[in-house]
Amino acid sequence: MLQILSITTPIFILIGLGFLSARGGLISREQVRGMGAVVINFALPALVLKAVSENPIGEVFNWQYLTAYGLGSLTVFCLGLLASRTLRREPLDSSAIAALGMANSNSGFVGYPIVAMTLGATAAIGLALNMVVENLLIIPLALALAEAGRQEGSALSVARETLKRLARSPLIIAMAIGLPLALLELRLPAVPARVVEMLATASAPLALFVIGGSLYGLRLSGMQGEIGMIAFGKLILHPLAVLLIFSLLPDVDPALMAAGVLFASAPMLSIYPILGQRFGVDGRCAAALLLTTVASFVTISTLLGFVAPSP
């Protein structure tokens, strides 16, 4: 138990420091957004570039991991969409956003620090693979369905806008730079490599601090049923689905399996309320983010009891 707490406690202390700093007026909401922009646009892309370019291409595109994490996430997304449509009678747009909250982890801000402290270098490979699943499958699928529910624009226009957004994503650009380097077995020159390493090292603590600052001011009022379903899907169903599919695949690396399950156990992405804003469900998304992040301290600590390596 002490080993588990030694992993989770520093993580949630950093989240708590961000929350208390925002609550105490030490940092403003605009400053939190600014730090988040640094993480998204510089620190995490540097981490992905480092992971992709410095590892064999066979490890970067591990088919078992992509299959398990991709199918597990897609399964939970479909279950969440079906539950929201049939049980709660939600329209397609809000159902798609609810399903997104269940099937898309905060891999960079929460998942990576946890997996890095638990499994070391495997975390960077898992993060790079998660970027493929999340940015090329789950998020585009959710947004396309949500747009279809609003009946705004053709499927072609939705696909075009999605591709434009992905092409401008620093994380995708980092992968596009790192993959040729890995294929050609090249390394960055010493000075750029050092800059990338420094930015990558800063990604985990800064990301956790930003999560804490972002949680200040969110409220859980009048939406317990909706947000409870999203939190259950994210914290329970998502890691279980990924674990189940991993268990059906041959020759799985135990470290990558543990990484995939831990990534899936993280709360949803921190920009979840922003994605929901266009479809009028930003309040519900913010409340779900708050509940899921707080509850994840218990669920992740419990999960680490099964997957954390022995001392």
Rank of each mutant, 00 (worst) to 15 (best):
M1Y: 08
L82G: 12
L127E: 07
L237W: 14
A288I: 07
L171S: 04
L82Q: 05
A288R: 13
V115Y: 13
L119Q: 02
P192T: 07
L304K: 03
L303P: 00
V195R: 04
S214V: 01
A241P: 06
G34W: 01
A287V: 03
F42T: 08
L184Y: 10
V39S: 07
L184S: 08
T9F: 15
A96G: 06
A202E: 05
M1N: 06
N104P: 00
M257K: 12
S203L: 11
G153H: 08
L166K: 12
P91N: 13
E161V: 12
A144F: 06
F42Y: 14
L100S: 04
P189N: 08
Y69G: 01
L87A: 14
P239T: 01
N62L: 08
L181S: 05
Q224G: 13
M35D: 04
A51G: 12
L291C: 08
R187C: 10
F306P: 00
V294E: 12
R160H: 05
S95I: 01
G25F: 13
L179K: 03
E226K: 12
A96Q: 09
A255Q: 11
V210S: 02
F306K: 01
V281A: 12
E152P: 10
T8H: 09
K164G: 00
S301Y: 02
A68C: 11
L183S: 04
Q3P: 03
E185N: 15
L275D: 05
L240D: 04
T9R: 02
Q224C: 11
G233D: 09
L249V: 09
C285Q: 06
N104C: 12
M1A: 13
V294L: 15
T67C: 14
M198I: 14
M229K: 03
E185C: 10
E185K: 15
G305M: 04
I40L: 15
P309G: 00
G280D: 11
S301P: 00
E161C: 10
V307N: 00
G120Y: 12
S21V: 01
L244P: 03
L119S: 02
A190I: 14
F61L: 15
P56T: 09
Y272V: 07
D93P: 03
I227E: 09
M1I: 05
A116Y: 05
I125W: 10
G149R: 12
L143A: 06
L303A: 06
G178K: 08
G18H: 05
D251A: 15
S84F: 10
T292Y: 09
I125H: 13
R150G: 07
C285N: 09
P250Y: 13
L143R: 00
A98K: 15
L163V: 15
L14F: 04
K234Y: 11
R150V: 08
L100E: 02
A308Q: 03
R278E: 13
N135P: 01
R168Q: 13
N106D: 11
I27C: 05
N104I: 05
I138G: 06
P91L: 11
A144Y: 00
T162F: 04
L137W: 05
D251V: 07
R89S: 15
N130R: 00
L129W: 08
K234P: 10
D253T: 02
L14R: 00
S221E: 14
L92V: 10
V76I: 15
P192H: 08
